[in-house]
C-alpha cells in the first residue's frame, strides 16, 4: 500500500516535472533554430504533446478499430463484411439497437423539459432559495452511475413475496395488498428500461437546469417587457419570447445528453447487466470484447456507434465554426 501511494506521488511529481522539462527542452530546441524557423516550429512544440496524446489514444485506435471490424475474432485475418452481417442480422442485437433508440428518444427530451421546468420555477424564488433548490437538484450530477444505481435500490428493491419489502415502490404496492414486483425483470412495455432511464435522468436534470437557467437569466428584460405591453400572457411570453431566445442552449443540452445516452453503459451494466431485455449497445460491446473475446464483432459495434455519432459531430463542428465567426 505504501509503495502504491509512493508510486502515485512519483507519478504526480514526475508527470508534472517531466512535462515542464519536456516543454522547456522543446522550447529551447525551437529557440535554437534561426529566424523564421523558430516561429514555424515553436507552435508545434507547444501543441505537440497534446496532439500526440489525442493521436495515440483516439485517432489511431479509431482507425485500427475500423480495420479490426473487418477482421476475425482475434484480429488475425480479414473476413470482409462478415462482422457487420452478423451484427445486423443478429435478432438480439437489433433488440439492443431498439432499446438504445428508446433511450435516445426518451432521456434527452425528458431531461431538457424537466430541467427547463425547474429552471423556470426556481427563477421565481429569492436568490437564496433558488440557490438551495438548485443545489439539491444538481447534486446527483456529482455521483457516479454506479453510485446512483446503488442509491436507487432503495426505491426499486425487491424481496420475495411474503417477506418484508425494502424498496419504496414495492412497499407502496404492499399498502394496496398487491404482490411485489421484480422491477428490473419486468419488460412489459419496457418498464424496466424506463426505470433505468429514470436513474440517468435523476443525475442529468441538474446539468440541464443549470445551463437553461443561465440562458433564461440572459434573456433581455425589454423583449419580455415588449411582449407584455403588446398584451401577451405569461404562457405566450414563455413560448413565443423566452423559448426562441434560449433555443441554442436547449439544443446544446439536448446534444450533450444525447451523446451520453448513445453510449450509456454503467447504469445497465450495474443493475441488470443487460438481462431482461434491457441491453444497450455499449454494454453489448463490452460483453463482446471482454466476455466473448470477439474483437471483430465488438469493433463492428463500435463502428456502428461511430456512424451514428457522425451527424452530431458535423453539427458540433458547424456550431463551433459559427461561434468562432461570431467572435
Amino acid at each position: 500500500m505504501a509503495i502504491k501511494i509512493l508510486n502515485a506521488v512519483i507519478a504526480i511529481l514526475g508527470g508534472i516535472g517531466g512535462a515542464i522539462i519536456i516543454f522547456w527542452i522543446l522550447n529551447k530546441l525551437a529557440e535554437s533554430l534561426k529566424g523564421r524557423w523558430e516561429d514555424r516550429v515553436k507552435p508545434w512544440m507547444f501543441a505537440g504533446p497534446a496532439i500526440l496524446a489525442i493521436a495515440v489514444y483516439l485517432i489511431y485506435p479509431a482507425i485500427v478499430t475500423i480495420q479490426y471490424s473487418f477482421a476475425n475474432e482475434d484480429s488475425t485475418a480479414y473476413v470482409g463484411f462478415k462482422n457487420y452481417v452478423d451484427v445486423l442480422t443478429d435478432k438480439t442485437f437489433l433488440q439492443v439497437l431498439f432499446n438504445n433508440v428508446l433511450w435516445i428518444v426518451i432521456v434527452p427530451a425528458l431531461t431538457v423539459v424537466l430541467g427547463l421546468g425547474v429552471a423556470v420555477l426556481a427563477d421565481r424564488l429569492r436568490p437564496r432559495g433558488e440557490k438551495t433548490a438548485k443545489t439539491f437538484i444538481f447534486l446527483p450530477m456529482a455521483i457516479s452511475m454506479v453510485g446512483a444505481a446503488t442509491i436507487w435500490r432503495t426505491i426499486y428493491d425487491y424481496q420475495p413475496q411474503g417477506t418484508p419489502q425494502t424498496g419504496v415502490l414495492n412497499a407502496f404496492l404492499g399498502l394496496f395488498n398487491k404482490d411485489p414486483v421484480y422491477w428490473y425483470g419486468t419488460d412489459t412495455l419496457h418498464l424496466n428500461s424506463l426505470l433505468l432511464m429514470i436513474i440517468l435522468i435523476w443525475t442529468q436534470v441538474g446539468y440541464s437546469m443549470v445551463l437553461l437557467s443561465a440562458a433564461i437569466k440572459g434573456v433581455p428584460e425589454d423583449t419580455v417587457e415588449a411582449g407584455r405591453i403588446d398584451g401577451a400572457g405569461e404562457r405566450r411570453i414563455f413560448f413565443s419570447i423566452i423559448i426562441p431566445q434560449i433555443w441554442p442552449t436547449v439544443i446544446t443540452v439536448f446534444i450533450t445528453v444525447l451523446i451520453g445516452v448513445m453510449k450509456v453503459f454503467d447504469v445497465v451494466y450495474v443493475t441488470t447487466n443487460g438481462a431482461y431485455n434491457t441491453d444497450v449497445i455499449a454494454r453489448r460491446f463490452y460483453d463482446e470484447l471482454y466476455t466473448q473475446g470477439n474483437n471483430g464483432y465488438a469493433a463492428a459495434i463500435v463502428v456502428i456507434l461511430l456512424i451514428a455519432v457522425i451527424p452530431i459531430l458535423i453539427y458540433q463542428v458547424r456550431h463551433f465554426r459559427a461561434e468562432e465567426a461570431a467572435r
Binding site: L58, V64, M262, V317
Partner: peptide
C-alpha cells in the same frame, strides 16, 4: 484544421479506442 478535428473528437465515444488499446 487541427482544432476543428479536436472539436469533432469531443463527441466521439471513447469506446472507439478500446479494442486496439487492450491489444
Amino acid at each position: 484544421v487541427v482544432f476543428v478535428i479536436i472539436v469533432g473528437l469531443l463527441v466521439v465515444p471513447n469506446q472507439v479506442a478500446f479494442v486496439p488499446l487492450v491489444k
